[in-house]
Design a protein around this nucleic acid. Sequence first.
DNA 1: GTTTGACTTAAAGTTAACTTTAAGTTGTAT
DNA 2: ATACAACTTAAAGTTAACTTTAAGTCAAAC
Lengths: 145, 145
Amino acid sequence: MPTKTKEPTYEIGEFATLVGLSAPTIRYYENQGLLKAQRTANGRRYFTEQDIKWVKFLLHLKGTGMSINDLKKYVTWRAQGDATIPNRLDLLKDTKADFMTKYRQVQHHLQILDDKIAWYEAKESGQDTGKEPFADYLKRIGHTV
Amino acid sequence: MPTKTKEPTYEIGEFATLVGLSAPTIRYYENQGLLKAQRTANGRRYFTEQDIKWVKFLLHLKGTGMSINDLKKYVTWRAQGDATIPNRLDLLKDTKADFMTKYRQVQHHLQILDDKIAWYEAKESGQDTGKEPFADYLKRIGHTV
DNA sequence: GTTTGACTTAAAGTTAACTTTAAGTTGTAT
DNA sequence: ATACAACTTAAAGTTAACTTTAAGTCAAAC
């Protein structure tokens, strides 16, 4: 039977590297209330595996478009217990709705970018459309600007 | 045979509305060199259908992640004629590469958001996993945080 | 003909999300 | 024991992309 080894802890620099942020950003997040570090007797922060998971989760939420302010709300509700699950769910669903709206827009933007790249490539290789403007080209291949 | 009617023109306010920006933003873009307005005898800007197409195209590029600075480069090269097509193509391809990187990341973020929403919904409707932490839940359904 | 709303400019202000600075303390390696 | 890197704090600075302000001109409606 293996002895239960103590969980590793990390000082702020290593922790920051592990989650892909800078140490100042970690401090900033803590000041904002998004996370809470434990402290050694001498006042130095230290972090655990749990903290890594937590920050990574926050970064996923942030990556879907949640602002620091939204994240603060979420964290506050989370600290208040299960009674606030509906609030959190609403926030996440709103976040998703906003995300999907932007996601669809961005797909359209990408389509236009791809078309423009194709147009330049055709032009560059001499298989071009002569002096046909890009807007006409788009209409011809079935896209609207 | 219908007579060729003059193309409509727009003052800055209407133009801004048509392209979904504010009048100050249009002025800002002009100051940045992204577009060029014609002027009446009294110094007022006016815009044509061509200008609408141009701004909409710029906004598509912007929507794929190009900064105002990138757009400036593009516009400058464009003004220099066909000799700069390779430069423009490189810029657009770099833009696309950056875009795709972020796009894939964002899809992962969305996955986690969806998982969390599902987790809360299960918890709310009593079909929950008891006290199973979210990270464990993710592992169980086959995702990694 | 006068009010009202839209336009003009240059310059200063705003916002989010950090980043940098300054001044000081602490842990570790030699 | 001393150097040196990593930590501590609070506060100021940065960046992009606008937005707002102030002071003035102009066109259309009543």
